[in-house]
Design a protein around this nucleic acid. Structure first.
Lengths: 108, 108
DNA sequence: GTAACGTGCAACCTTCAGGTTGCCCATTAT
DNA sequence: ATAATGGGCAACCTGAAGGTTGCACGTTAC
């Protein structure tokens, strides 16, 4: 089930998608056409990005009339952040253990 | 220079690379051959992954004799984590502002 | 010395990501 | 009713990611 992590990190790997997420976080909601107006790509490209973000669970679509507004659903961001923090913590733990061990031994 | 974010998130998007990072965090150092023994890919594939991780600034190589040991350099992980936290914080801030602004419209 | 081991590098293959154009459907405006 | 707008879907193109095999070089062991 770490497939979710794949989807999330892959989603975050593209600058256009990060821009979309930042915009949604700041503005609340946005439509594909709005976003395409602020990016150097076509509306269809933005739609693809939104589809990917939706597949990763990072955005939520909601049609109102003929336009569809997308909203941020930041849950999976937490999973990604947690993974990073965990690895960092394990590294720090190992480092301090090593340092503790070195104060008696004095070798690498 | 958010190019760094591209490299880091791209690096984290692959499960084999995440395994490498987790292993380095837990074990301290590892060689390409060691890692290849624990992954369903060839040593050369692992070497490519390590090259990518190095380009992202996530690992550090150090040759000792005929083997080269890789070590985690978690700095860029902090940048990635910071980006995520920032977006999450902006979203939360917007949410609470919205909630403060309207106390009646609890429909979703 | 010669053999074996650990690496890195280059060439190649296949799959997929990001973009584009083109078409069609639903909704709003005139 | 007709035109225009917003959106999604499909086909197609191009470049790069992930993998493999093969080879060449430095290092350790016999």
């Amino acid at each position: 089930m770490p497939d979710r992590l794949n989807a999330v990190f892959s989603a975050l790997a593209d600058p256009h998608r990060r821009y979309v997420l930042e915009t949604l976080a700041r503005r609340g909601t946005a439509t594909p056409t709005e976003l395409a107006g602020e990016l150097p790509v076509t509306r269809q490209a933005v739609a693809k990005h939104l589809g990917l973000l939706h597949a990763a669970g990072l955005v939520d679509r909601r049609r109102s009339g003929r336009e569809s507004r997308y909203r941020l659903t930041p849950g999976p961001l937490g999973e990604a952040s947690t993974w990073i923090e965990r690895v960092g913590a394990e590294w720090d733990g190992r480092l301090s253990a090593l340092r503790r061990h070195l104060e008696a031994d004095g070798r690498d």
